[in-house]
Design a protein around this nucleic acid. Structure first.
Lengths: 149, 149
DNA sequence: GCAACATTTGCACACGCTTCCTATCACTGC
DNA sequence: GCAGTGATAGGAAGCGTGTGCAAATGTTGC
């Protein structure tokens, strides 16, 4: 079973590498966004996803999936952002159980200011991660495995 | 600046892909380990790292770095695992400020039982992730960027 | 009316931060 | 030798926040 054991080990090692890289990037983004805009990574992700969603609304469940959050966490997150005036809740006309979230102008403006910081931090963190031998191949693969090479 | 903008977008997209894959894998592992062994992913990681550390002890700070945890969180995590009899705290002989954590037999036994579940869950989650078109290339890269292909 | 669904709320817990505390090195000067 | 000083490793407790789970609440469709 040498071959099978190797595959197991490859996956385990891959997972550790993935977790390590993810941890590094998230930490860097967290600090930068927190310091500059009082936004957590998840909050930024939600704002960005909303803006990217052809500028339109999303239901809570979509938000939850996009941010990989539980329903309750999503509720509280949206509430937080709503209280800061970054997005709006609006009832669906057709299904009044559903609630649409959409960015306010203030939210769009904050996002536009945060985006370059996000981009710069990401670049820096990726470059730094790329210097660790065990992360180099994954970083390169990550940047090379996209639609337009 | 079309080229530069493209690079920014590639990195942002790469980060989203990485986060999505990481989230999927972590969620699957979390559920499986929680259900089967009452272990969180971080707890499993610490046990696994300890076992992997040539079967020997680690200082608290090493544990903290390996698990990407803060100082206080590490103390609590190790305390939890110690209370469950999965690991021991032992004073270093040479530097008695330091504290070594090492697996107990019970901890090793639990880890040995959890390992195949971890491996199987990881394989299943990776296979499932690989079916999502946007994740396929990253999964393949992850499994292909390791010492022995 | 009733089951399925979308969302919210109450509860418990883990994490991070900060502050304070102890024990232990590693030096220094006497 | 041996106190005195500063740096380091780790623990304890309090506070705030985010999260998941499970139980409400309001809605829809049959």
């Amino acid at each position: 079973m040498v071959i099978a054991d190797d595959a197991v080990e490859v996956r385990a090692q891959g997972w550790r590498t993935l977790a390590a890289l993810h941890g590094r990037l998230e930490e860097a983004l967290e600090k930068a966004l927190q310091a500059g805009f009082d936004l957590s990574v998840v909050e930024y992700t939600v704002l960005d996803t909303l803006a990217r969603q052809d500028g339109w609304h999303m239901r809570m469940q979509q938000v939850a999936r996009a941010a990989a959050l539980s329903h309750s966490a999503t509720t509280r997150l949206v509430t937080r952002l709503e209280n800061r005036g970054l997005l709006n809740r609006t009832l669906c006309a057709d299904d009044r159980r559903g609630i649409y979230s959409s960015l306010t102008d203030h939210g769009k403006e904050l996002l536009e200011r945060a985006r370059p910081v996000h981009a710069a931090t990401l670049k820096k963190a990726l470059d730094e991660a790329s210097e660790s031998p065990e992360l180099t191949p994954l970083v390169e693969a990550l940047l090379g495995t996209l639609p337009r090479p």
